[in-house]
């Protein structure tokens, strides 16, 4: 090794170490973020709501490109009641907690299921919608119960609560073909794979599965009676944002009491 090359390598190494230590020492900034941001949000007049705009029917874009959906209607009503505008920010669903904790968004509100694992990262509002993790197959399969999934390929959306629900039954998951679920970026891709018969079943939120099935023709699919458990949708907040959480919880209470909530439900989920 020539002397020049050696010296260059040393310089390079020092630079890399320098950058790493810069990143390392910087954690003291985080304390500033631990404050309740309600006053600041009130001052700016709006909160930012993180939405996966591919998630029909909870929050998605219509043909005009406007974000619509059950969660969007609900949020707009809440916005009127808490006196803060709501700005919608589309996000990549796998980055949602990072977006929240870095302050890019103030709430995760888009068919966000309440789970124990998520409770460690975010604070949840009261549950506002019930949901099940259903198992969907094509109509003509011999899969009729959960146990029939052994030896089959099962798909779900990456980072979704369906994956977490399945993990509560590790033996069953280990018995899947491949020993784990096949994960896709979106539920739509999981369902397309089901239609292509490369996977035998999809586990997904009931609300979403029903929407998809309705679009593609209900007679081609079946939803098994057994499921991977019930769960509820909640709104995710930064843990320190207690005041905002309380304000929105109260608005939801009022909406449930005066029938506004039922109206919005009717609009999106009427059978």
């Amino acid at each position: 090794m020539s002397r020049n090359l050696k010296r260059n390598l040393i310089v390079a190494l020092i630079l890399v170490l320098g950058i790493l230590s810069l990143v390392g020492c910087s954690n003291n900034n985080e304390e500033a973020k631990q404050e309740d941001s309600f006053e600041k949000l009130k001052e700016q007049g709006y909160i930012t709501m993180g939405v996966d705009d591919t998630f029909a029917p909870m929050g998605f874009r219509d043909e005009k490109g406007e974000i619509v959906g059950f969660d969007i209607d609900l949020a707009n009503e809440v916005s009127k009641r808490i006196g803060l505008d709501i700005k919608i920010q589309q996000i990549d669903w796998t980055m949602k907690e990072t977006e929240l904790n870095s302050g890019n968004i103030d709430v995760i509100w888009n068919g966000y299921s309440i789970t124990d694992e998520r409770k460690e990262k975010v604070a949840f509002s009261q549950p506002y919608l019930e949901n099940r993790q259903v198992i969907v197959t094509l109509a003509d399969t011999d899969i009729n119960a959960k146990q029939d999934l052994a030896g089959k390929k099962v798909a779900a959306q990456n980072q979704s609560s369906a994956v977490e629900a399945m993990e509560t039954e590790p033996e069953l998951v280990a018995a899947f073909d491949g020993g784990e679920p096949v994960l896709f970026d979106t539920n739509n891709e999981a369902f397309m794979d089901l239609e292509a018969k490369r996977v035998d079943a999809v586990v997904a939120d009931e609300v979403l599965a029903k929407y998809y099935i309705k679009q593609r023709g209900a007679e081609r699919f079946k939803i098994l009676e057994e499921d991977f458990g019930e769960e509820e949708y909640g709104i995710g907040f930064r843990k320190q944002d207690v005041k905002l959480l309380e304000a929105i919880d109260k608005a939801l209470d009022d909406m449930k009491a005066d029938g506004t909530y039922d109206e919005i439900c009717q609009k999106w989920f009427a059978e």
């Binding site: 029909a56 589309q90 980055m95 979106t186 739509n188 679009q215």
Partner: peptide, 23 residues
């Protein structure tokens, strides 16, 4: 750029594909 929540061409396609369950 989808990863930082920017809507580009492929994302627009995915949104419509999810909404209409169509390829």
């Amino acid at each position: 750029v989808y990863v930082v929540g920017l809507g580009e061409l492929l994302r627009a396609g995915k949104i419509a594909s999810n909404r209409d369950a169509s390829l």
